[in-house]
Amino acid sequence: MKSWLVPCILVAWLLPASADHCLDPPPVNYSILIVTAREERFVVTYTCISGYHLVGKKELFCNKTSLEWDSPAPTCLLGHCPNPVVVNGQLNSSKLEPVSEEEVVTFSCGTGYILKGSNWSQCQKDHSWTPPLPICITGECKSPQRPKNGHFKARDFNSGSNTTFYCDDGYQLIGAQTLQCMDGEWSDEPPICEEILEATTEVPVKAEKESERNNICESIQKLMQCQKDKGKTLEELKYSLEIKKLQLEKMKAVMST
């Protein structure tokens, strides 16, 4: 009988048997096992034969105290890679036989679900799938957290929908005002509402008015000094200003017509 038809192939112990080691390692159908010594304790390694994949721990260690193996024996199941299963989705293949090495499969999701990940995968020599198997998720996002001292408005939380945030009076929005649901995830973190301090608005206005008054005073002082340098009295300055005022009013009347 050929070796690959033998249910279990056992490679003999590489160290002499003694009374202070674990019992013989449990056999596993369709596997090859090797027992070695590592850091003064026995280790058994299981490898499935071609066409089968391992489910469980590949290595078992012998406990020095209890003289028992640290884990249950694995199993070897038919198929070079584990059967590709996607919850809420399906495998796009008519093949019913176990998966073989280098086989490529494709996936799709059921109604109302969105594929996250690659829509195909290939069975590798090490019995794994590459890229990793995808998952099927709902496109709906979870309700965002309402900001303290604020609120949000939204029609729904489905994929593609927008949610807009607002703050109460006396508070300003920090962060993105509008978030979009994209394949079950929000486009950004929810914003917060921060209190508007009075000093942040009143101080600049007060400083601006003070600067304006200073400019007016400075202009008047310059004008008075100029008139004084020319030897004109305050009465003459007053008369000159009245004349300029009448001229400006006349020009304003002409422009309005």
Rank of each mutant, 00 (worst) to 15 (best):
C217F: 05
V205D: 10
S94W: 07
F165M: 07
A19H: 13
E39C: 09
P131D: 11
G231S: 15
E59H: 08
N158L: 05
T163S: 13
Q145E: 11
D183G: 00
G184Y: 00
E242R: 10
C123K: 04
W129D: 10
T47A: 15
E210G: 13
P98I: 01
L223W: 04
D156S: 09
M251W: 04
C123E: 05
K252T: 04
K206N: 08
G231N: 13
C136K: 00
P7R: 10
Q172A: 15
P144S: 08
W4H: 10
S161K: 09
S71D: 09
P131I: 03
G175H: 07
F42P: 02
L223G: 10
R146C: 09
T201Q: 06
T36H: 15
T164P: 03
P132D: 01
N162M: 02
V11P: 03
V99Q: 11
E212H: 07
S31Q: 05
V35R: 15
C22F: 01
E97Y: 11
I135H: 02
S121P: 04
S118P: 08
C167Y: 01
Y30V: 02
K125G: 07
W69H: 12
V205W: 04
E194V: 09
Y30H: 14
Q124A: 15
V86S: 01
C76M: 06
V104K: 12
T233F: 13
K222W: 05
K244D: 13
